[in-house]
Amino acid sequence: MHWDWSIARDALPVMLKAFFEVTLVVTVVASILSALLGLIWAIGLREMPGALSKVLAFVLSLLRNTPIPLQLLIAAYAIVQPTGWLSHTSSLAQYQHRLIIIGIVVFALQYSTYMAESYRGGIESIRSGQWEAATALSLPRRRTWQAVIVPQAMRAALPSLGNWAIAMFKDTPYLIAISVPEMVSQAQDIGGNNFSYIEVMTIAGLIFLVASYPTAILMRTLEKKLVY
């Protein structure tokens, strides 16, 4: 077996297209969503009455402790498909779009549970004096969160949020479970057609490495810098 540059040359544009159109889109959109949801969970866990907060914590732990591929299958084939939303599509492209949306939701939910933990750490790192000063100034609870706690917690949690986003990025091939044409599934297809996988899988690995390693380094630097 030898390395075939022509396969690599043909595969690279297709894979990069899938990378930018699917892998990256899912990662970015789902990261933003999970960062928002995670914040909502973190505040909810602190502010909701005891019983409700326990229910939320349990739901989050269910989401966190079950595999994404299974969650994707459940979301696509047990929850969405019976509604007809997946089948009533006019084109393959639209069908795939909808699968991508399902994928984004599943990734956003799963990683929101981890990000909620990051925010919780950030919130707990804020000294009690900050809460006390807000009380002494009679700031309403809402305003205290908005103006005092969240900005500080955000800053403390940022590197950790970034790291979860990188972890999510490397999990995107799980989308193969519901046949979303992301980069690795494209690689698999090309490899199958040429009866040679070494080129495509090497390229896929390199793309992941090239995209994630510098971001990870950035987060490690950020971690040291972002301290009040």
Partner: peptide
Amino acid sequence: ALIRRRIGMVFQQFNLFPNM
């Protein structure tokens, strides 16, 4: 909250908001 507004406090550790 209504009555608390009439009271202000200065703390040993200042407790200024570092993000502002």
